[in-house]
Amino acid sequence: MTEFDHQQTAHCESGAVAALLRHNGLDLSEPMVFGLSSALTYAYIPLVKMGGMPLLAYRMPPGRIIRGVSKRLGIPFHFERFRRPTDGTTALDRYLEQGRPVGLQASVYWLPYFPENMRFHFNAHNLVAYGKEGDDYLISDPTFEEPMRADTASLQRARFVKGMLAPKGVIYYPEVITQSPDLTKAIPGAIRSTANMMLRTPLPFVGVRGIRHVARHMDKLSPANEHYNKLLIGHMVRMQEEIGTGGAGFRFLFASFLQESAGILSNDGLKAAADQFTDAGDEWRRFALYAAKMLKGRSTLDYGKLATQLRQVAEMEQQGYRMLLDLKLR
């Protein structure tokens, strides 16, 4: 059976990529994987609905972390998709027999080891399969403390659901890593990419502008729609915390990446930026706290207060990205 070093991370895609790279000889932390892929963002897209709620994203679309790291470090990844579920299972079994752990994408709803209250129809969860024992796959799901198991039928089901972000049984793994990449060259571009996107995107619902846009929207919520408004507020907090972000919509994860980069690049300015994003993260957490108190009925439902808190978040984030660009990292 293949030995696999299971490590729990905050987020699934960054965790899976880090695990696969580590297994193939390249040890990068989850924050480094996340940061290098420039995955941090903010986007509010009402036209796209998820569970009846407008799309709210604190990270770039699924797949961005794999492709972002691949591109930034020059490490090609192999991707394979299948039309027929049985073909997908046969292929997975073959890789595992060869002793190759692989990354998979699956629906959270159909994974048997997921807690009941976390099972929603989200089809872009990432995990690593590293072995098979009888009918059970040995799974290193990065968001769980210990390795898990899934029976063949369930995993096949989860890998081949139809719908938004359908996995199509995708299997992925890094191809041979020929040399240790130079992080001092990779980090500056990755940071610039994130900072530019958050500060300079012309679209009004993306980036820092997006946060302010949502704040304005919050100010204008009508008391007549209280039930929906509460669901919307709850949705914002869920996307920020519940889905596995490491806390504060990936902001703490990003701050950790900046701090690690400060050491690699010997740049104190990055340390200060890490502080700034930690503070921004704390403001996000404060937003979540206010929201939860209001939803629970422990404090008055006050859309204006939430809007003000979002503007505070926007201000802190804006300063943070400004700091990053002003460092003129090369």
């Binding site: 991370t9 905050a10 569970g51 209250n117 976390m118 929603f120 403390e145 509460k230 669901l231 709850g234 949705h235 907090v237 869920r238 915390e241 519940e242 490491g246 979540a288 706290l289 929201a291 939860a292 939803l295 629970k296």
Partner: peptide, 17 residues
């Protein structure tokens, strides 16, 4: 990193959903 056994704020919104 640190392990968390849960956050009440998160529970509130999860229960709501």
């Amino acid at each position: 990193t640190a392990l968390s056994s849960g956050w009440e704020a998160e529970d509130v919104v999860l229960d709501q959903a």
